[in-house]
């Protein structure tokens, strides 16, 4: 289906925190308790609607294993959004966030919207990281924060969609140059009928302001 924008996402974080499960829940609306180890990167895509516009999310689900880091880093570039995931039942996955964040900031564009996700919120009894700690970390580093459960689907939609909303707002504000694909944003195929209002290819930025 035609879309107004395409956003590239990456999902990063330690191995076993539920990155692939979050993706599966988001794209297929199902939960798979046992997942094969992700090699390099796998993909998912889904269409969402923001502000009446169809937006296609193209999601790059990276391998969490340390040994894959040199490969997966290559995939960060050109992402508009990142989901940085930790496991609320494993303190070490929270402790590694700083490294992940540095890595992400270093290998991607500076405007990338990062959503911090504390996953496995259904396992309250085994919680090792308080929600407040996640919130504090996010505040400190300028991230959006959310606790999710890929198992119960709680907040999964919201995590992906809120990230997209943030990106969309940045486009409206002109922070993102949507004509530069290195920002992880692509403009969808434009309909000839709407071309007159969107003023063709070179008027991309004006179009953003123009229609609001």
């Amino acid at each position: 289906m035609a879309y107004a924008y395409l956003f590239k996402y990456i999902i990063i974080g330690d191995t076993g925190v539920g990155k692939s499960c979050l993706l599966l829940q988001f794209t297929d609306k199902r939960f798979q308790p046992v997942h094969d180890l992700t090699i390099g990167v796998e993909f998912g895509a889904r269409m969402i609607t923001i502000d009446g516009k169809q937006i296609k999310l193209q999601i790059w689900d990276t391998a969490g294993q340390e040994s894959f880091r040199s490969i997966t880093r290559s995939y960060y570039r050109g992402a508009a959004g990142a989901l940085l995931v930790y496991d609320i039942t494993r303190r070490d996955t929270f402790n590694h966030l700083t490294t992940w964040l540095e890595d992400a900031r270093q290998h991607s564009n500076s405007n990338m919207v990062i959503m911090l996700i504390g996953n496995k919120s259904d396992l309250e009894s085994r919680r090792e990281v308080k929600k407040e700690e996640g919130e504090a970390f996010a505040r400190e580093h300028g991230l959006i924060f959310m606790e999710t459960s890929a198992k119960t689907a709680s907040n999964v939609e919201e995590a992906f969609i809120n990230t997209a909303k943030e990106i969309y707002e940045k486009i409206q504000e002109g922070v993102f140059d949507i004509n530069n694909e290195a920002n992880g944003i692509k403009i969808g195929p434009q309909h000839p009928t709407t071309n007159s209002t969107l003023t063709g290819s070179q008027g991309g930025q004006q179009a953003g302001g123009g229609c609001c």
């Binding site: 289906m1 035609a2 969808g188 195929p189 434009q190 309909h191 000839p192």
Partner: peptide, 10 residues
């Protein structure tokens, strides 16, 4: 692909 999408939509 995008051209196709456009055509399809049309």
């Amino acid at each position: 692909k995008e051209r196709e999408e456009l055509q399809t939509a049309e």
